[in-house]
Amino acid sequence: MADVHSSLVVDNTMGAAYIGVLCAGMLYGVSCVQTWFYFNRYPKDVWYIKVLVTATWAFDTVHQILISHTVYRYVITNYNNPEILSRMVWSILLEVLFNGFIGLLVQGFLTLRVWRLSNKNIPLTVTVAAVVLAEFGCSVAFAIQSMQLHTWIELGKLKGLSMTVNALGVVADVLIVAALFFFLHRSRTGFKKSDTMISRLILFTVSTGLLTTICAIASLVSILIWGKTLIYVAFYFSLGRLYSNSLLATLNARRAIRGLGEDSDELSFSLQSLSKFGQRPFTDSNRPTNLSIKIDTIHEYVRDQCTGDPQVRTCPIHCDQI
């Protein structure tokens, strides 16, 4: 009787898994286009960024294959076979591991941005990194333990661990977005061009981080309310794809965002010219006097390093900063 009940539960919610695979598939198509666009437009990027993009796309591909195999096995191969519905297929368990790999790569990349934008704030960076690693560790633990189970009823024993993975994902996303928002907002200069660029960075950071946060919350809430169904996988299947697309969108938007500050040389020159005549460029005494130097530096770094100039070795707003 328990197996029959389990079969009915899975059967009635397999549609949610099917929708999740369709959504993940569409997002996978977008990530493929973005990956092609990245390598076509940024061929001179540093090697570790290229490795990051390649690894993310590879894990994305494996994950899409696994979840497609899961739905195909239940819906097509075993169509009208209720007995198989009580048993778990190995691919739906293994996909958790690859989702964890994708999250680790993308959130690790964002943690590095927090470290650099915060002027190497060790306590903050360690806190964010600890949450990210804890999330990945729980994903690995879930995958290992679940592979030893056979039925959906047995999988219910790991509900707490599954909720922990989603909860840690939410916490990590919120910490990263909040930290990036704070440090980017604090770096405003008061000049229109540079502030426009920073505002665009803030909007981009918040919007991409918000999508993954909402998806992780939806998956967590689904487990809490409909824990005996597969509704939560409709969100969890797409979570890794949202991470990869947010990474690729951030990298591919660099030139557009950089273009917002292209006139900062002219602005900086005007300020330096005024200084030669002993005039203060600001009436507000609270403004720092070395602001023109800061804008000059930001502009030159973004122009040289993000176009792949090998002569520039360090850059506070490098491609892994934006």
Rank of each mutant, 00 (worst) to 15 (best):
V4P: 00
S6F: 14
V9H: 09
V9G: 05
V9L: 14
V10R: 07
G15F: 01
A16P: 01
A17T: 08
Y18L: 13
Y18P: 01
G25L: 10
G25C: 12
C32M: 10
V33N: 07
Q34A: 10
T35Q: 04
T35E: 03
Y42P: 00
D45E: 14
K50Q: 08
V51T: 11
L52I: 04
L66V: 12
N78C: 05
Y79N: 10
Y79K: 15
N80R: 14
N81T: 10
P82H: 09
L85S: 01
V96Y: 04
F101Y: 13
G108L: 03
T111R: 00
L112C: 06
R113F: 01
S118A: 05
N119G: 12
N119E: 06
N121D: 12
L124Q: 01
V126G: 08
V126E: 03
T127D: 00
V128F: 03
G137E: 05
G137R: 03
V140P: 06
Q145K: 15
I153Y: 07
L155W: 11
K159D: 08
L161R: 06
T164A: 15
N166S: 12
A167L: 12
G169E: 01
A172M: 07
L175N: 05
A179E: 02
A179M: 04
A179R: 00
L180R: 08
F183H: 11
H185F: 02
R186P: 00
R188I: 04
T189V: 09
K192W: 05
K193A: 15
S194C: 12
T196K: 11
L201E: 03
T205N: 10
T208W: 07
G209I: 02
L210R: 00
C215H: 00
A216E: 02
I217P: 03
T229E: 07
L230T: 03
L230H: 07
I231D: 02
V233L: 07
F237E: 04
L239A: 02
L239P: 00
L239T: 06
L242T: 06
Y243F: 10
S244W: 05
S246E: 01
L247K: 02
L248C: 10
A249Y: 14
A253K: 10
A253C: 13
R258L: 07
D265I: 13
E266Q: 14
S268R: 13
F269L: 15
F269R: 15
S270W: 09
G278R: 11
G278T: 05
R280C: 00
R280F: 07
T283V: 02
S285Y: 13
N290M: 09
L291Y: 01
S292H: 02
I295A: 08
Q311L: 11
R313L: 14
I317R: 11
C319E: 09
